[in-house]
Design a protein around this nucleic acid. Structure first.
Lengths: 340, 340
DNA sequence: TTGTAGGCGTTATCAT
DNA sequence: ATGATAACGCCTACAA
């Protein structure tokens, strides 16, 4: 099937390219008759505008770029879903890139996206990213940028996040209210803000309830397999502290599931011996035994909202009425199940 | 930051655009000195070629499109990961689209992809798709097309699949060898080939082992929540057949997990009372109790391979040496755990 | 109401 | 070794 251009339609109809173009775009200054002839033939020939030409001419691509560490996490899958849904509504296409938690890759992908002329960019930062020049570059190029979930506070752009600190605070407060006092925390990498914020929320909750913070109760999970981290740290925890521990708050459901596995294997009862609270409310949390209490993060909504904001910024940039970056904090919810 | 074009570099250096372009592309007919001056300035100015112009000129976008029903399934996440990895290697970008198991949407998205001028398209068909005109359109446009996992046998293009029939056959044979005779099958929608093939494998295995096929042992899972389907059909199965059932083979791990939940809730022992075999080897399969036996489908490799093939086809199209569609059947593996 | 002409940024052909 | 020119396909200000 040969690709149809305006020129071919024009020749066929013995009119100018201009008129064809105008007819197709519903310009008022085309006679009804001509317009109809053009429309008919275009449909007949299955005319599709060449988007490269349009983009070149219009300086916009109707495409946005998205960079996430990975989509194998249920949370990000949901975010992507929200983004795609929103893009679909606006007739935008989405270019998806995985940084694989790799800063260099993330940087390269930003360059790629810029060079592709995407109209906007959404990023959830890799855990390894602590240099933000590449983000600044996006801003310098005047491309709307929205950071979501894993953000950099210092970068001047819109952000969509969850109040990790508060969520963690709520979790630990809940645990304390349930009577637990020796509460361990399985945290994530030192770098990403989420990990820090959740840790801070944990600490604050202890403080506010007059429980001394004990650093030996904090375990680091960073060997790239959350499940393994949970399993092995559960073992370590027991070795270190025996059963003096009342509860564990994990930074991620998968870590909690690793713990469940270890506890099940070693006959430790949840929540009787040790209570457990996860984070992210992964689908599995509701399904595993015991059903895992967790924090719902509303990934889908985060995707929707993030996309919504870039589109807003794209539109207002187009109208020459640039708007200020906005920071949206999505609510979280404690989902209480059987594990605490 | 203003966008830099060849023209600007040319003016700055007082040479022609042509020379700048050549210098940047390492043409041999540019003096060393000129080339260096161009290269330096380009780097200095942070020159990025305008990809619309390049695409328009070159008639290729260095972009491929991917349509999947959804990525919230672990399997597809893995496929996507494989595709992105492969694309990254070839410096291609990937436009991701979700059909949401919706034929109309799938069709629309194909049009979008065509109009965007992607160099190749990968699709895993929606369950609702049983008209393939949109695929034919892709082929007519001479755009390399690869179908993976959920394919249409009659469409003349490359395909990457798994031998679902054999995999199912192997599962059921294994179950029979273990001594089970009354084996139920929780199958999927009637439409997708996979569902049919797995059912056929199930039936064939029974036949080959002299077990009568009993249609009342086959349950349909199609209300869009696999977990719920598993749970409710487990209930139905027990109501219909009591504990005369030896084993259940499910078309998907999530269905099996629904069953596990129901059985756990109702004190039915797996595998003592009823054995269980899943499909897809979702991460959770290894982690749930009892650990679920399943079929490893190698999603990541499927993604890699599919992408590899489109790139092959794109390249050979470019060299005017079109190649024949190929059909790749990836091996599957029975992963035996505790549930059978 | 219709058409001409210029330009978006790049690349390729052909002169010089 | 360098450059003028045309072309990719589309849009739009301006002329006719």
């Amino acid at each position: 099937m040969k690709t149809i251009t305006l020129k071919q339609i024009a020749e066929e109809l013995n009119i100018s390219v201009t008129t064809v173009s105008k007819a197709l775009k519903d310009y008022p200054d085309v006679s009804k008759k001509t317009r109809q002839r053009v429309l008919d033939l275009a449909k007949d020939l299955n005319y599709i505008p060449n988007s490269f030409a349009v983009s070149l001419r219009m300086q916009q691509s109707k495409t946005i770029g998205v960079i996430v560490p990975a989509t194998v996490h249920h949370f990000f899958s949901n975010v992507i879903k929200g983004i795609l849904k929103e893009a679909e509504k606006k007739d935008y296409l989405v270019i998806l890139l995985h940084s694989n938690e790799n800063y260099e890759l993330e940087k390269k992908q930003v360059d790629l996206l810029i060079s592709k002329g995407v109209d906007g960019i959404l990023i959830s930062l890799s855990n390894k990213t602590n240099n933000f020049e590449h983000l600044q570059k996006i801003i310098d190029h005047d491309i709307p940028l929205v950071l979501f979930d894993k953000i950099a506070k210092t970068v001047k752009c819109s952000k969509v996040i969850v109040d990790d600190r508060k969520a963690a605070y709520d979790v630990v407060s809940h645990l304390i209210k349930k009577g637990h006092r020796r509460i361990a925390h399985f945290r994530g990498d030192l770098n990403p803000q989420n990990s820090i914020d959740r840790f801070l929320g944990y600490k604050q909750a202890l403080l506010d309830h007059d429980i001394d913070f004990d650093p030996t109760l904090v375990y680091m999970c960073n060997n790239n397999s959350d499940f393994e981290d949970g399993y092995s740290n559960a073992e370590k925890l027991l070795k270190d502290h025996g059963k003096t521990i009342d509860a564990i708050f994990t930074i991620t459901d998968v870590i909690a599931i690793g713990i469940i596995k270890y506890f099940t294997d070693h006959n430790i009862k949840i929540p009787e011996d040790i209570a457990l609270f996860g984070f992210s409310n992964w689908f599995m949390a509701s399904v595993i035994s015991p059903a895992l209490s967790s924090v719902e993060q509303h990934g889908y909504e985060m995707g929707e909202k993030s996309a919504h904001i870039v589109f807003q910024e794209i539109d207002s940039k187009h109208n020459d009425m640039p708007i200020e970056p906005q920071i949206v904090v999505l609510p979280t919810e404690l989902i209480i199940r059987d594990s605490c």
